[in-house]
Design a binder for these strands. Structure first.
Length: 830
RNA sequence: GCGAAAGUGGCGGAAUUGGCAGACGCGCUAGAUUUAGGAUCUAGUACCUGAAAAGGUGUGGGGGUUCGAGUCCCCCCUUUCGCACCA
């Protein structure tokens, strides 16, 4: 391509100067703050278009708020622990640390070439001991506050990654990273008690009014609160009691069985002294394995194993058979339920299969199809029947009173269950934060004392991933001294889930070099909450719940104040190509380096903001980007063409009243553009329309130029527009805006210039006449020029006199006429 | 199955409070300029009928509210996303 503006020269020139002048350093406590946060990238090798989008949005906002006069915090870091580094080590024999740091260096150079305005003094990488020691510190605080514990349980296991996955990392039954089907394994693992915060995490969602609705909905579902009751069923002839959870205590008279999860801890006790114990145990084991294999598959047929034991319904004394049922989840409620086949679809299906009796206890409405078809069931609320002394009550009253009754008699109580589980953080991998725990034969599980942190990752000599954590194979690491009794002990060899790293990194930016503490509370108080957080929707339930939890946990440790860390959340859409997500296998990847080479950083950033509103997916188009490039070239040319007199000292400022028609039009257009761009960025986060408005303004400048720029007033208006447009464009295309700012002789950096304000008087037309559409029966027929303050009667009369309208109204009867001043005239005729 | 979001020209997308649908950009058409153009400038560009003037149709489909609906209400279709045996 020839005849294009020298973006390479311009961009590298200003990048160097900005860096030299330290333009993006944020100083604590310097005025009113604004914190722009973007999700930190995983250093996978190169930036992809999704990163460019994420950071272009953030950078535009950061630059805008700086120009608005805020003290802006705009940091970046690296989510630097994780599996790909290890996979690279296995494949290419590179040490994970070298691989990671090399990638960081390259991606950082890309960010610099894109011209993002980060305060690099605050950069952090989570794989460095300076950072991960604080993960360990938090772990110990939580350990001391009973917020972290170890238990043996069934866990999600990815065979390809050779590690455990959190529930949040299992997607459609497969590993979130590589899709490998997840299997269940019984392992001893560390868990964070996030469930202790379930109620608060749910309740505080209400206050997050500037978060997207769908994120709040996703989190609400994920936390999954349900109100109900726990009820104790005594097992006949034993001292054992089974606690069930139900949301429908009102249906307890319809219970025909008690179902246990195959993984229920009481199963073993119930089989004690059982005549058929070996056979039942075998069946249960088979079911357990089958459940694991099918865990995510809903269509699985209901299977049961009758234990030949009975439980007593405490409400009516009925003896109910106890079954193991394959669809009962151990992780929800108590892992045991009462079966009510008349009012629950699953229990019904099960009871029909095994021919258990079905007794309705809720009266369905008269028109409900249950009456005609007994394979249908009624799951709604209603009046109780067949329910002893509770008969006749409505469901809601019954549930309340029955829970009170159970509590008074010591066999139950109203409870709330949550779907969210505790957060399993153990990972059997090398490249993560070592869990700071030592196992001592004499002292048990001992946390590493704060003074002995960090527990450093040992140098990795031999890469051996089979058979548990690689750290297990490093003897110097495993052999430790008990911090308490100083006798030989064994070190924990699992590392932490990397979501731990990303749960608090945004706090560390407030002082990334701090030693002695993870954060300084006063500085955190100054910068928080985050004013806007920008990142992918895929983190709606994982990272964004962990982050909220972590903040609340830190608040309870006295480190931060306030309920929530993030005020406003912007979830950007994906960058796709040809209707599909960019991926190596599809071969539809667009490389940011290639685009920057052809068009420069400004065009790349401008296009990615212009092509689509941030929340929506963006279909990358190789031709549409030319439009943005053309716009910048046009801007460059017109400013250069007129630069001599624009740069000349301006004369006196003429009042708007002495401007001629076309000068006035351009002046007003400018102010409307200022108003639109400001509101689009600030309120709506709609960069595409803001940029479109800038394009319109440039088009007007071309029209104006065509008409000639001769008089002092022509020049005054044109100079004014040029300056304003450069200011408005600066958040999107900082390099070119800066270059042209200097071309027109402005001193200082455009990036530090004040954001322009719109004069409200210039937002409305000053013409005494206004053109308004004239409709007949809601159909546009013509337009009319009317005085702004025209009265209804006059307006309608004038409109009816327009020749075209008069013709159309002939032989018609006007039933009604509507006049909305400044908006519309509408004749209703017959 | 449950929940949420979306559906507008050839394409990406505008329409912020119910008031002129299609801003802006791509593409396309014509003209100018140019040695040339995949550069630049100008004009045009929803669809149908028509030489034109003009008329008709039009925001997934159907109904409704309203003087007036892309926008509000009801039903349906399609797509995408989230949850998915949660008792």
């Amino acid at each position: 391509m020839t005849d294009v503006y020298p973006f390479n020269e311009i961009e590298s020139k200003w990048q160097k100067l900005w860096e030299k002048n330290d333009l993006y350093r944020s100083v604590d406590f310097a005025g009113e703050k604004y914190y722009v946060l973007e999700m930190l990238p995983y250093p996978s090798g190169k930036l992809h278009m999704g990163h460019v989008r994420n950071y272009s949005i953030g950078d535009a906002l950061a630059r805008y708020q700086r120009m608005k006069g805020y003290n802006v915090l705009h940091p970046i870091g690296w989510d630097a622990f994780g599996l790909p580094a290890e996979n690279a080590a296995i494949k290419h024999g590179i040490h994970p640390e070298k691989w990671t740091l090399d990638n960081i260096a390259y991606m950082k150079s890309q960010m610099r070439r894109l011209g993002f305005s980060y305060d690099w003094e605050r950069e952090l990488a989570t794989c460095l001991p300076d950072y991960y020691r604080w993960n360990q510190w938090f772990f110990i605080q939580m350990f001391q506050n009973d917020l972290v514990y170890k238990k043996t349980a069934m866990v999600n296991w990815c065979d390809a990654c050779q590690t455990v996955l959190a529930n949040e990392q299992v997607v459609d039954g497969g590993c979130w990273r590589d899709g490998t089907p997840v299997i269940q394994k019984k392992l001893s693992q560390w868990y964070i008690r996030i469930t202790r915060y379930a109620a608060e995490l749910l309740a505080d969602l209400e206050g997050l009014t500037d978060w997207p609705e769908r994120v709040r909905v996703a989190q609400t579902n994920w936390i999954g609160r349900s109100e109900g009751a726990n009820v104790l069923f005594a097992v006949d002839g034993t001292g054992v009691e089974i606690e069930i959870f139900t949301t429908r205590l009102d249906t307890i008279y319809g219970a025909n069985a008690v179902f246990l999860s195959p993984a229920h801890p009481l199963v073993e006790q119930l089989l004690e002294n059982h005549p058929r114990r070996p056979e039942l145990a075998r069946q249960i084991e088979r079911m357990t394995n089958q459940v694991m294999a099918d865990r995510t598959y809903q269509g699985t047929t209901k299977e049961g194993i009758f234990l030949e034991r009975y439980a007593i319904n405490p409400f009516n004394g009925e003896r109910l058979p106890i079954w193991i049922a394959n669809f009962i989840l151990m992780g929800y409620g108590t892992g045991a339920i009462m079966a009510v086949p008349a009012h629950d679809q699953r229990d019904h299906e099960f009871s029909r299969k095994y021919q258990l009796p079905i007794r309705p206890v809720i009266q369905p409405p008269p028109d409900h199809p249950t009456a005609a078809d007994d394979t249908l069931i009624y799951t709604g609320y209603g009046r109780l029947i067949n329910s002893g002394l509770w008969t006749g009550l409505d469901s809601a009253t019954a549930m309340d009173r029955m829970a009170e009754h159970a509590a008074a008699n010591g066999f139950g109580k109203a409870t709330v269950s949550y779907r969210i589980r505790d957060w399993g953080i153990s990972r059997q991998r090398y490249w993560g934060t070592p869990i700071p725990i030592v196992y001592c034969d004499h002292c048990g599980t001992v946390p590493v004392p704060e003074a002995e942190l960090p527990v450093l990752l040992p140098p990795l000599r031999k890469i051996d991933y089979r058979g548990g954590s690689p750290l297990l194979n490093i003897e110097e690491f495993v052999h430790a001294e008990c911090p308490r009794c100083r006798r030989p002990a064994r070190r924990e060899t699992d590392t932490m889930d990397t979501f731990v790293d990303s749960s608090w990194y945004y706090l560390r930016y407030t002082n990334a070099r701090l030693s002695g503490n993870p954060v300084e509370p006063e500085i955190v108080r100054y910068w928080f909450p985050v004013d806007i957080y920008i990142g992918g929707i895929e983190h709606a339930t994982g990272h964004l719940i962990y982050t909220r939890f972590w903040w609340k946990m830190m608040r309870d440790l006295g480190l931060v104040t306030g309920a929530e860390p993030v005020n406003r959340l912007l979830t950007q859409g994906m960058v796709i190509k040809d209707g599909a997500k960019m991926s190596k296998s599809l071969g539809n990847i667009v490389d940011p380096d290639a685009i920057m080479k052809d068009f420069g950083a400004d065009t790349t950033r401008l296009f990615i903001l212009f092509a689509s509103p941030p929340e929506k997916d963006l279909d990358w188009s190789g031709t549409d980007i030319k439009g943005c490039f053309r716009f910048l070239n046009r801007l460059y040319r017109i400013v250069r063409r007129q630069r001599r007199w624009i740069a000349a000292p301006p004369g006196p400022i003429p009042g708007p009243d002495i401007l001629d028609e076309r000068q006035s039009v351009l002046l007003r257009k400018t102010h409307r553009t200022i108003d639109k761009v400001s509101r689009d960025i600030d309120e709506r986060l709609q960069f595409n329309t803001a940029i479109a408005a800038c394009m319109e303004l440039l088009n007007e400048m071309y029209t104006f130029e065509q008409g000639g720029i001769r008089t002092a007033h022509d020049q005054w208006v044109f100079r004014m527009v040029t300056k304003r447009l450069l200011l408005l464009a600066a958040p999107f295309v900082p390099h070119l805006a800066e270059e042209l700012w200097h071309v027109i002789g402005e001193p200082g950096s455009v990036l530090l210039a004040e954001w322009p304000t719109a004069d409200p008087d210039l937002l409305v037309e000053d013409s005494p006449l206004v053109e308004i559409p004239v409709m007949i029966n809601g159909k546009l027929r013509d337009r009319i020029l009317l005085p702004v303050e025209a009265e209804q009667e006059q307006a309608v009369a004038d409109a009816a006199e327009i020749p075209k309208i008069r013709k159309l109204l002939q032989e018609k009867r006007i039933v009604n006429s509507v006049y909305v001043p400044g908006r519309i005239i509408n004749f209703i005729v017959k």
